[in-house]
Computed example of a mutant assay.
Amino acid sequence: MKQFIPLLISLLASCSNQSNENASESAEKPVIKPDSSYVWTKILDSADWKKNYNFQMFSNRDTLWTFHPDGNWFSTNGTNWTKSQLPNSIYNLAFLDYVQFNETILGLGHFEGNIEQFTFKPEIYKTSDFKNWVTISSLSNIPKRFFYHPFVFDNKIWIIGGEDKQTKYSDIWNSPDGINWTKQKENLPFGKRGGSQIVFLNGKLYLLENDVWSSTDGLNWQKVTDEIVKGEQIFGYSTQVFDNKIWLLGCNRNGQFSSQVLFSSDGKNWLTQNAPWLPRGGIASTVYKNKIYITGGKYGGTPNHPNFRYDNDVWTLEKKLFFSGLP
C-alpha cells in the first residue's frame, strides 16, 4: 500500500498544477461583453426627389415610402428608389399631414395657398394599393385647421390642437375612419398649441413640444417636464420611437437649428447625440427594418445664415454592438 502513496501524491500535485494553469489561462483571456452604440450612416448624397422640407416618410408592408410635395417614391433598401404613380393629394404638406391607418395611408384634407390666403377642402383621401387615391369623403367634418400632427391610438385617428387663421386650439378629436370626427375634450391642461408631436411608448402617449405631457387614454394628461432642455426653447423636430426611446431629430434650439439629436426613455430625462449630418429642421423620418431613416430638411433664416439651404440626402441610425476585452 505504501508504494502507491508517492504515486498518489504525485497525481494530486499534477492535477492541482493543471487546475492552477487552467485558471491562470482562463484569467488571461479577456471577458467579452457587448457595448451598444447608435451609429449614423449616409446612404445617399442626393435622392431622386427635390430638396425640400416638411414632408413625410412611412414604412408600410415592408416598403419604405417618401411622401413628397412633388410625388411619392418607394424603396425596399433605402438606396434605390422608384417614383410611384401615386400623386400628392394633400398638396401643401407644410400645413397638413398624411396618416398611416390599418396598412393604408389617409390624406386628411386638401390645402392650397399659405397662411395669409388659402383654400381648405375637408376631403379625405385613401390609398390601399399605393397607386391611386380614392376620395372617401368630399364633405367630412374634420376640423378646419392646420399645423397639427394626427396620430393613431386605440384603433382611431386623433387630432390634438392645431390652429387656423384666427387662433390655436386646446381640444381633442378622434375618428374611427377619418371621415366622422367627434370632439372628445376641450380646455386641455397644456393649453392652446399647434405643431405638437405625439408618440406612443410603453403604454403611454407622449405629447412633445418644448414641454412634455403624457396620457394613458388620450384624454387625461399629466405634465412630465416643463422643458426638454433646461433654459432652451426646443421646436421644429421630427419624432420617432426607436429602441424603446423617443428620438427628436432636427431640433431648433433657441432659434438655431443644429445636428444634435435628443433621446429619452421616459420623456423627462434627455440625452444628446451629435449627428454627422448638416444642421436642419423639418426632417422627414420613419423607422424601417430596425433603423431610423431621415431625409429632407431646411436650414437658415438667421443673421448668420440668412439664406435657406434645403436637403435631400438620406441617412440611417442603427444600434450596433461592439465587443471589447475587459481587464
Rank of each mutant, 00 (worst) to 15 (best):
W133T: 05
D97P: 10
G178A: 02
K144F: 08
S89Y: 12
I160Q: 01
F118A: 03
L317G: 00
N80Q: 09
I160M: 04
N274T: 14
T119H: 11
L44W: 04
F147Y: 09
V199R: 04
W181C: 04
W213R: 03
V31A: 11
A27I: 15
W315L: 00
D70M: 05
I90M: 03
L96N: 01
N132L: 15
Q117L: 11
F200I: 14
T66W: 04
I172F: 07
N77Q: 07
W247V: 06
Y98E: 05
A94I: 15
K268S: 13
E103W: 05
G109V: 01
N304S: 15
D177G: 11
K319N: 06
L271G: 12
N155C: 15
I228P: 06
D45G: 07
W65G: 00
T119C: 11
I5G: 07
I142Q: 00
G236H: 05
F151I: 07
W40D: 00
N114F: 13
K319Q: 03
D226F: 07
G231M: 07
Q166I: 14
F146D: 02
G282Y: 01
P306R: 02
L201G: 06
I157V: 12
G161M: 02
H110K: 14
P87E: 07
P306D: 08
W213H: 10
N54S: 11
V229M: 15
Q56L: 10
C15R: 12
V99T: 01
L106T: 03
I105Q: 04
R145M: 08
D313W: 03
G281P: 10
S16Q: 14
D177F: 06
T63K: 08
N114W: 09
S46H: 08
D154R: 13
I292C: 02
V152Q: 00
K268A: 15
L207C: 06
F257Q: 14
Q256T: 13
S89C: 15
S24M: 14
V134R: 12
S59E: 13
S138R: 11
P276G: 03
Y91C: 12
